[in-house]
Design a protein around this nucleic acid. Structure first.
Lengths: 340, 340
DNA sequence: CTGAAAGCGCTTACAG
DNA sequence: CTGAAAGCGCTTACAG
């Protein structure tokens, strides 16, 4: 046998037609059980695999999803947000379970997206996952909508923005803040952008505000400081607050990456976490557990999230009715709040 | 225009044949410049994209690489080694530069690999990246060899094991250990497996031994403790050494993940890094810089590594002669050795 | 339950 | 420089 075997080779060896081979390989109920068995045995012996391009071309579906990971501003190449990478892991597993292959691409939010996966039939749909200014993000989504591209987006639900899967950021923020209040912290800083440019962070901020108000505490604008989701931004934000002489005994960081940088800044000034300043993060990235001290945080269930993203997209591709999904968060207490 | 446009639609609109459209879209020098321009303009207007399956089926190449990430033993889902994830980032970028798509799959080393990317023409070749017992790994490689699959592997060169790209583990281990010796540490532990089951770790261990011998220090078996590449393993290993009463003033961990866990264990016993025990890791994962204290480590250049993996594989696919590559490492001094 | 035939949308000799 | 034609390897009506 020279070159790869084709379904004709199998047909010849099995003494049936090529059509029957094609059916038998996909376990068609139309084919007699023993024929299926014979065909599949021969296919195995020949190490035959259905040609993906031929079958996709004919059936007009690729059984492939594309994952578009983006991040803005450009962080150091190696500093891709670990949260997204956890998601990547769960997404690949979910795809495998559903029999889809996964095409992965990193792009900048600021770039012209090369998202022609569907137009070129490379993928049946796209999963969007990343971090960046929502104002830059929306036009990209609009473009995908216009092209009729099927996609699902990780993020908060919002009207007119297609299908999304996201966690309950507001509730997570509220839980984190209530936890700090319960531990008798009263001057709680929020480190993270809190505007419509970053809807997820903004929702976490709103949860923070809600918790403070419920506890009868005042909202001090001086206690909020912008930060994108990098260690450096957390580090810089805390230093800026301390330099300004802002006093606080706790800090809720909009992401673990920010929290890790924030703890470094606190400790570099000779202050203690949690004695002087208690810290809560958001995400529960792998590092959180091994930070020093281990970081109390709000877990987003990446396994559930990845499975949900894939499931929603696959169902959309199949033409089923799908709606956006919000998944719950879970507070994980560790030592950075002085409790256990 | 209903459905996706085809090259025939463009041909019709441009008043040329479909063959000419096909050539013009790929900037064939056979086609007159103005024809190319006209065809490409119309294609743009129609948002036309070449159908991947049709072109791949016809030309018998998919312009896609597959990345098979594996890890053994199964760690917690979210704890995929950050080093590999950094590599993933650089590999996707390298693929994009070379005009290849990337199919990603996570699998267990212990599983039957579903690595039929090439047989089914999904990919032109495979990049193997992961961590696990080499004794389990080798049969998988042999199988790929038998099938004539084109692949490149991240790891140390070794005869009869196909194409590989890896870093100079031995030199890296030697550099790390010499750094500790230079800082007057004399009782240096090695945390990590040191056998042919883990060739990369073993090479780092050999560098460690070389440095000790060059400095006239003795090699004490009690100072080596096995650990796979997880924080937990590092944590456990250090506790085991301390429990046994082994005395050491420095520690070279075979990976950053091990080092981070080791530092946690040291600190949890009330000891100081670096005052009591200086620590060096290996990899320079993103966390290293934000560990407490920041971790001195041996950097593997993931950008270079990813580019090299892709380049080697693509050249192999093109039928060019390729040989295995070893890339250099770089010692990154931070505070975990008490220097800066 | 099976087979003969059409056709998915390209690329690429071949002929001019 | 361009066009007509074949064919990549499947899936799927259609006919029996």
């Amino acid at each position: 046998m020279k070159g790869k075997a084709t379904s004709f080779d199998i047909a010849h060896l099995a003494g049936v037609s090529q059509s029957t081979v094609s059916r038998a390989l996909r376990n068609s109920p139309l084919v007699k059980a023993e024929t299926i068995e014979k065909v599949q045995r021969i296919a195995r012996e020949l190490n035959y695999k259905v040609d993906k391009h031929a079958s996709s071309l004919r059936s007009q579906q690729s059984a492939t999803l594309a994952l578009l990971l983006f991040e803005d501003p450009t962080t150091d190449d190696s500093l891709i947000n670990p949260f997204f990478l956890s998601m990547l892991g769960s997404i690949t597993r979910a795809c495998a379970r559903q029999g889809f292959d996964l095409l992965v691409s990193f792009q900048q939010l600021s770039d012209d997206w090369h998202a022609d996966y569907e137009d070129s039939h490379k993928a049946d749909g796209i999963i969007l996952l990343g971090y960046g200014d929502d104002v830059d993000y929306r036009p990209k989504l609009r473009q995908l909508d216009q092209q009729g591209t099927r996609y699902v987006r990780w993020g908060p639900q919002s009207q007119g923005q297609g299908l999304s899967v996201g966690c309950n950021n507001r509730q997570g923020g509220q839980d984190a803040t209530e936890h700090l209040i319960r531990l008798d912290r009263r001057r709680i800083a929020f480190i993270g952008n809190a505007s419509h440019h970053y809807p997820e962070f903004f929702a976490r901020y709103q949860g923070y505000v809600r918790a403070l108000m419920d506890a009868g505490l005042s909202i001090e604008p001086a206690l909020q400081h912008d930060a994108i989701t990098t260690e450096q931004a957390g580090f810089d934000a805390v230093n800026a607050l301390l330099d300004k002489g802002v006093e606080f005994d706790a800090l809720f960081a909009a992401s673990d990456l920010i929290a890790v940088g924030a703890m470094q800044a606190i400790q570099s000034r000779g202050l203690s976490v949690p004695d002087d300043i208690a810290v809560v993060g958001f995400d529960d990235i792998p590092v959180a557990r091994f930070a020093s001290p281990p970081l109390t945080t709000v877990r987003q269930d990446t396994n559930l999230a990845g499975a949900q993203l894939v499931d929603s997209l696959v169902r959309q591709i199949r033409g089923e009715a799908v709606t956006s999904v919000t998944i719950p968060t879970l507070l994980i207490p560790r030592q950075s709040c002085g409790e256990r």
